[in-house]
Design a protein around this nucleic acid. Structure first.
Length: 427
DNA sequence: AGCCTTTGACCAGCG
DNA sequence: TCGCTGGTCAAAGGC
């Protein structure tokens, strides 16, 4: 509860506002597939890097740019912010893809939770499956499918009415910041805000259409926030088997198991008292297709759009989650100001020792087992908060090895490394 | 009736 | 060995 989370920033909890993604270890085969050492970070990392290092503008601004582009909206066949400097990394990829850095459409199963405070890519994500997915077009075909930027742009497109209102209007400084470290947090802020405001996602194969439809109609009528009863609707059915108040955690942690027979996938969900999901941690890998049975709130009754994909992370399974770790109770504004940055792309490899892998997006380093993390949460929080504001959550894509291998289903080429001041891990 | 949630108790790992 | 903590179990109740 709040008993151990002093509200005054910078506090340890302030760091918790920074979401992170810790990717699970990759199997040897996957390493081979992905090219092993030298492989570059995953999409989140890359996207984040785009904004953080190559573009001084806020993510909202970038999103606005995407919106302004005739091809940038629901239509998936366009480059995200093609004319902007943040595309440098994309250009890098172009070298490999032979041209357009884009998706034909989103990979099946790629999920961007539209639930409050959550941005999740579900477990079961793997390079191979993603590459095989219809949404991915091999470089040889001259296309790279829909880029992450595009996904973000699409998400943002539906979020424009809300994200702009909540993120930019209420927190104009956030989008205005461009040179400070906080500006690096900006890129995902709109998305996060959006997601936090969004109802449960709806899986579909025509996300673009939904994005378009929603962005054009339903979006404006969407309530800024809502409470969800289900932790997620990621296409799987979950049964809650426990709940506990974790020490140091602001919110109770719920434990879910996949209800599919023989499926051992579990997830932990932390939810604020107002129903906002603040953290989700997946464990394991679904060895079954997503259930056709949809949860009650799975529908897009609210016009919510989500991106969903099915990734197979391989032998170790994958968990990905993005959430806002809150400090104290998260208000709507807190969620709206939720920002994500590419910082802290670390090469910690502790998770490689784990039989299960976790991925999370929250404000903590997550490359350590739970037991270890207990001892380091406060420390890392303090470290992070020392150079970051409270309302600057980030997406941290952490690889499980020193070579920045990310099981995000994409192939990345590392084009640089740098030690960032205040960050113990090279970027 | 079946499934899910709740919740206290129990178990295991760690320092 | 003990206490702390996170994770899990399982009975009870609800939907």
């Amino acid at each position: 509860m709040a008993e151990n989370q002093p509200p005054s920033p910078p506090s340890p909890s302030s760091q918790s506002a920074r979401p992170r993604i810790a990717l699970p270890p990759r199997s040897s085969m996957e390493n081979l597939f992905m090219g092993g050492p030298g492989a570059s970070p995953g999409p989140m990392t890359l996207v984040s890097s785009f904004f953080a290092e190559n573009d001084p503008r806020s993510f909202s601004q970038l999103l606005a740019g995407a919106m302004d582009s005739p091809a940038g909206m629901p239509n998936v066949r366009h480059n995200f912010l093609p004319s902007q400097p943040v595309q440098q990394a994309a250009v890098e990829n172009k070298e490999d893809t032979g041209g357009d850095f884009r998706f034909q459409h989103r990979p099946a199963g790629l999920v961007v939770w539209q639930q409050p405070g959550m941005f999740t890519i579900p477990p079961g994500l793997s390079p191979a499956s993603l590459l095989d997915s219809p949404g991915f077009v091999p470089p040889a075909q001259g296309s790279f499918g829909m880029s992450h930027q595009q996904i973000l742009a699409q998400v943002s497109s539906q979020a424009q009415t809300q994200a702009q209102i909540h993120t930019q209007s209420e927190y104009p400084s956030l989008s205005a910041a461009s040179t400070s470290s906080t500006s690096q947090l900006q890129p995902f802020s709109s998305i996060m805000s959006l997601q936090q405001q969004m109802p449960p996602p709806v899986r579909d194969t025509n996300i673009m259409k939904e994005l378009s439809d929603v962005s054009q109609s339903d979006q404006k009528s969407q309530p800024p926030n809502f409470t969800v009863d289900k932790p997620t609707d990621d296409g799987y059915n979950w049964r809650k088997y426990g709940q506990k108040q974790v020490k140091g955690g602001e919110y109770p942690r719920s434990y879910y198991k996949c209800t599919h027979p023989k499926c051992q996938v579990k997830k932990k969900v932390e939810r604020s008292l107002d129903g906002q999901i603040t953290e989700i941690i997946y464990k394991g890998q679904h060895d079954h297709p997503q259930s056709s049975k949809r949860t009650k709130d799975a529908g897009n009754s609210n016009g919510t759009v989500h991106l969903q994909g099915n990734f197979d992370m391989g032998s170790e399974g994958l968990t990905r989650n993005l959430s806002k770790s809150g400090e104290g109770l998260l208000s709507n504004k807190d969620l709206e100001s939720f920002q994500v940055t590419p910082e802290h792309i670390s090469g910690s490899s502790d998770s490689e020792e784990m039989g299960e892998t976790e991925t999370r997006v929250d404000g903590r380093d997550d490359d350590e087992p739970e037991s270890k993390r207990r001892n380091t949460e406060v420390q890392t929080s303090e470290q992070a908060s020392s150079h970051r504001t409270v309302t600057e959550p980030r997406i941290i894509v952490q690889t499980t090895s020193e070579v920045d291998l990310l099981d995000d289903g994409y192939r990345w080429r590392k084009y640089g490394q740098k030690v960032v001041k205040g960050n113990p891990h090279p970027r």
